[in-house]
Amino acid sequence: MELTLGLVAGPGTSRANKTGTWRVERPLFLNIKCVACDLCIMLCPEGIIDSNNERYFADLNYCKGCGICAHECPVKDIMMVKEEK
């Protein structure tokens, strides 16, 4: 991919840039005590937490590991765990 002059780009570049590589810790959704309050979804600054009928999950392509979800979870059902390779 060749860089464009002045890095001019069409819309959607924040989707193309996978900012998840910045992460040091990832949220681990335990899905044990969860009361389905959706606070984690609403407070995630990246808007990348979602849920289905079974569980909650984060899109790790973009999650920067800020830990707000874990901090705010009223029943402490989210743990931040170190990213280790």
């Binding site: 860089l3 002045g6 890095l7 001019v8 780009a9 069409g10 819309p11 570049t13 924040s14 840039n17 590589t21």
Partner: peptide, 13 residues
């Protein structure tokens, strides 16, 4: 024709 000027560059660019 919406465009971004000087868009974000990761360390690889």
């Amino acid at each position: 024709n919406p465009l971004t000027f000087g868009s974000f560059a990761e360390p690889d660019k």
